[in-house]
Design a protein around this nucleic acid. Structure first.
Length: 373
DNA sequence: TAAACGTGGTC
DNA sequence: TGACCAAGTTT
């Protein structure tokens, strides 16, 4: 019994066989040559898994320099499972979305416990691991084991939204997009088909100025055929993001050491180190803010000195201006009140700790200011 | 369901 | 400079 147009309409504008043949032929000639895509890497589920996690919301070019380095440090799932969280975060430093690194390590431990150190081969078992959703699971299993499972990452959403001329934002039509992805997955070459979909999105069916004239799906693309490729996919309105002004302290002691703290394990930049500080309240000076925050967070008194640098940084859902001042420790033993740990370190030691990007900018400024330290 | 969660590149 | 975008998952 068919109940609605939406449920009964075909998921694809032409047969899957036609789409598969044209796309795979294009992929054989124009697909990208990526390390996790060819043997021996593609035959190692661990390598494919790490690449899929690193590539979440992250472009290939950004991931490339991290990829081999990761396996130098954590050659096997067992090595990752046993590694210190701090070492894992240091290897991930700069990639962002640090819950990915925490989840990767935790999932490695679960693979050891549940699957004897072998990455599981079923969708349900893969999705049960932290940090692996349906897209990543499909990506890993199709790539590593050539299983016919659909994916729906940003590239595929855009490609399929254009192919079917989706009239609403992809987030509002995930069921239809998953159905289209499932319909187009090749039974012969699922690995190549999925990789081809992503390559098409990354290199031809791009967000801005898609190269429709060289697209293997030009003749079938409902967006192109109706000249809507610039308007599709429909974008969602985005909420304005707040801008916070933060006072930050570089606190030095008479030995020339600097005080850093480790952020709580979960949440924003969880487990990473930083220079202490906090949000400037209305009608509060930067210096007053820094003194107050350091008293509240670390329980010590400091003297706030000259400004070292102002760092503007944009996160996904807010922006900050870090007003960083050089400070002197006056009295009190630093306590980890609103963080997980505090340490005095020298500039020579500081590179051993994982820091978020905005703080590495501060470290660079410090090294310039104190080149002999 | 919507917000939280990083960073680098482009226009 | 600011807005937008890029191989999403979690809560």
């Amino acid at each position: 019994m068919r109940s609605s147009i939406a449920e009964t309409s075909e998921p694809l504008p032409v047969s899957a066989a036609v789409l598969q043949r044209s796309l795979l032929d294009w992929y054989d000639r124009h697909g990208r040559d990526l390390p996790w895509r060819k043997p021996p890497d593609v035959l190692d589920p661990y390598r494919v898994w790490v690449s899929e996690i690193a590539l979440q919301q992250t472009q290939v070019k950004t991931v490339l320099p991290y990829y081999q380095r990761w396996f130098d440090r954590f050659p096997t799932i067992a090595d990752l499972a046993q590694a210190d969280l701090q070492a894992v975060l240091k290897a991930w430093e700069g990639l962002g979305y640090y819950s990915r690194a925490r989840n990767l390590r935790r999932a490695a431990q679960l693979v050891m416990e549940r699957h004897g150190g072998q990455f599981p081969r079923t969708l349900a078992e893969a999705i049960a691991l932290p940090g692996i959703g349906r897209t990543t699971a499909g990506g890993i299993l199709s790539s590593a084991f050539n299983l016919p499972l659909p994916i729906l990452d940003g590239n595929v959403k855009r490609v399929l939204a254009r192919l079917i001329a989706l009239p609403v934002a992809p987030a509002k039509a995930l069921d239809r997009l998953w159905a289209a992805s499932e319909a187009v997955v090749s039974l012969d070459r699922p690995r190549d088909l999925n990789q081809a979909l992503m390559d098409l999105g990354a290199t031809v069916c791009t967000a801005r100025k898609p190269a429709c004239l060289v697209c293997p799906w030009m003749a079938y693309c409902q967006a192109y055929q109706t000249n809507q490729q610039q308007q599709i996919p429909v974008s969602e309105p985005k909420a304005p993001i707040p801008h916070k002004v933060i006072g930050v302290a570089v606190i030095r002691n008479p030995q020339g050491q600097i005080l850093i703290d480790r952020r709580p394990a979960e949440g924003l930049l969880g487990g990473l180190w930083e220079f202490p500080g906090g949000k400037v309240e209305p009608n509060e000076s930067i210096a007053d803010c820094i003194r107050r925050e350091i008293q509240e967070e670390l329980g010590i008194e400091i003297a706030v000195g000259e400004e070292l640098i102002v760092v503007d940084h944009a996160y996904t859902h807010f922006k900050v201006s870090l007003h960083v001042h050089l400070c002197e420790h006056l009295q009190g033993e630093p306590q980890a009140i609103e963080c997980d740990e505090v340490r005095w370190v020298t500039l020579a030691e500081i590179d051993q700790f994982p820091f978020p990007k905005a703080n590495t900018t501060i470290i660079e400024a410090l090294k310039q200011r104190f080149p002999d330290a």
